[in-house]
C-alpha cells in the first residue's frame, strides 16, 4: 500500500492505469533481477504482459491461411518463427502456434489483434485463445547469456546450430519453457506464470558466477 502511494508517476492514460494495477508473475524478482544483472556480461529482465495468443489450426487449411494473413505467416516446422512487424508466431506443434505481440495489442488495452484472429478462424475447427496471462517473458542478454542457459537446457545452443530467429519448446532448469533466440546474444524465455519465480531464481543463480573475477 505504501508503495502505491509513493508511486512517482501516477497513472494517467487508461493503458497506464490498467497496467498499474496488475502484478506480473515475476514482479517479486524485479529488484533481484536488477541486482543480479551485469552490464556487458549477462543481464536479465522481465518483459511483463506481452500479448500471447494460442492458435490451433491444421496446416494448409483455409483457416490457417486466413490466420497467416493476419499474423504475417505461420511457421512451417520446429524452431521456425514467422510473423511481421512486432507480431511473431512461434511454432509449438504441427498444428499449434503461439502469437507473441506487444502489450498494447491486447484487447483490454484497445488492441484488435485477438479479435482479428478470432474473425480469421471464423466457424472453422481450431482455436484462438488469449494466453497472455499463461506465460511471462524473461529477456536474457549479453555475451554470457548462452552459458547461463546451457546450465539448464540440453539443446545445442551453439550459434552454429541455434540461429537468431528460432524458438524451441523445451526444458530449462527442469521445467517446460519456450526459448526464443531473438539476436546473437539475446534470448527470450517464456515460462508459465507459476514457474516464473522458480526459473527467475534459477537463472539468477546461474548468473552469479559471472559477478566474480574469473578463477584462473
Amino acid at each position: 500500500m505504501a508503495e502505491t502511494a509513493a508511486s512517482p508517476t501516477p497513472a494517467k492514460t487508461p493503458v497506464d492505469k490498467d497496467l498499474a494495477v496488475r502484478t506480473s508473475p515475476a514482479e517479486v524478482l524485479r529488484d533481484a533481477f536488477a541486482a543480479g544483472s551485469l552490464a556487458g556480461t549477462v543481464e536479465i529482465s522481465e518483459l511483463p504482459f506481452l500479448t500471447m495468443v494460442g492458435i490451433r489450426a491444421a496446416a494448409g487449411s483455409d483457416a490457417a491461411q486466413r490466420i497467416a494473413a493476419v499474423t504475417g505467416g505461420l511457421p512451417a516446422g520446429s524452431g521456425a518463427v514467422a510473423g511481421s512487424g512486432d507480431t511473431s508466431v512461434l511454432w509449438l506443434g504441427p498444428a499449434e502456434f503461439l502469437v507473441v505481440a506487444p502489450t498494447e495489442a491486447h484487447e483490454s488495452l484497445g488492441g484488435g489483434l485477438i479479435q482479428a484472429l478470432r474473425d480469421a478462424l471464423g466457424g472453422d475447427s481450431g482455436q484462438v485463445v488469449d494466453l497472455s496471462a499463461n506465460r511471462t517473458t524473461f529477456e536474457l542478454t549479453g555475451p554470457q547469456a548462452r552459458s547461463v542457459l546451457e546450465k539448464g537446457c540440453s539443446l545445442d545452443l551453439h550459434p552454429r546450430v541455434f540461429k537468431p530467429g528460432t524458438a524451441y519448446s523445451t526444458e530449462i532448469g527442469n521445467i517446460p519453457a519456450l526459448l526464443w533466440k531473438t539476436g546473437e546474444e539475446s534470448f527470450r524465455v517464456f515460462p508459465r506464470a507459476s514457474f516464473a519465480e522458480f526459473l527467475g531464481r534459477w537463472l539468477l543463480d546461474g548468473m552469479r558466477e559471472y559477478a566474480s573475477p574469473e578463477v584462473p
Binding site: 520446429s78 506443434g93 499449434e96 519448446s169 526444458e171
Partner: peptide, 11 residues
Amino acid sequence: ERWVHSTGCRQ
C-alpha cells in the same frame, strides 16, 4: 511402445 513429446510438440 508409445511416447509423447510432452514439453515439445505434444504429439
